[in-house]
Write a protein that binds this DNA or RNA. Sequence first.
DNA 1: ATATACCTTCGAGTGAACTCTAATGCAAGT
DNA 2: ACTTGCATTAGAGTTCACTCGAAGGTATAT
Lengths: 131, 131
Amino acid sequence: METLLTIRQVATVTGLSVHTLRYYENIGLLSSIDRNELGYRCYSSADITWIQFLTRLKATGMSITNMLEIAELRRQGDSTLTARRILLEEHYAEVQQKMMELQHNMDLLADKIVTYKGMEHDYQSKQSSAE
Amino acid sequence: METLLTIRQVATVTGLSVHTLRYYENIGLLSSIDRNELGYRCYSSADITWIQFLTRLKATGMSITNMLEIAELRRQGDSTLTARRILLEEHYAEVQQKMMELQHNMDLLADKIVTYKGMEHDYQSKQSSAE
DNA sequence: ATATACCTTCGAGTGAACTCTAATGCAAGT
DNA sequence: ACTTGCATTAGAGTTCACTCGAAGGTATAT
């Protein structure tokens, strides 16, 4: 028999808040989380895996709207595997592009830091010569 | 005599909107933009350079609050050069850290894409054997 | 003279992604 | 009996960084 987790346990495991887990279910990112006899949510290990996948998409900057699109396709079954894989590949390519642009900006920032060091040196020379 | 730019020209050059330029001035990211006889803003080339620097900080994910801190130090003159440089270095280190984490998540996403391809293959075999 | 195309200010509105509150209920511990 | 600690729902509030609208002024073009 599979161990089922409470919402609080899932929050601890995934790093999401209890609020966020309910929010994700409300908007349709999580579908059909089972309830126990008291109406409490019981998460299966498949649910945890799916939440961790969503977390990874979020960590790479995917919007909730795009995650919803993938969640909706998943609900339709294995016939949508290719469609989902293509969405992931597109997202991957976009993020790679953004990372390259970010690295460029970081290089410019590094240049600026060097410039600052030169200015600090000049400023300190001026201060000491004025003594 | 230096060429001074209108707010619209600055918007075109920097890629920020006219609204955003006024917003930045209101909150203190831009200080003492000169006005002409009609009260219109006249941006100097030093102003443009500063705006482009802010744009770069923004592109690397710096919050407006942190940019304000740097802008405030800049207003106090060259004695704050070292303080500003240290803030930049800290920001740089944080972003490098985030980029490493992002790359890790991207690697996991790439693995997932490979998994999907295997699942697609299995699904297609099953479909054709069921014919 | 009037339309257009700018500019000004202040302050309200937007969208994303949560984040929290209120009202309510159950069930085990002291 | 009552507190604590968890759960439920709907819906309101928050934060960030803009983004826009209203009301009004000025200068050039027709």
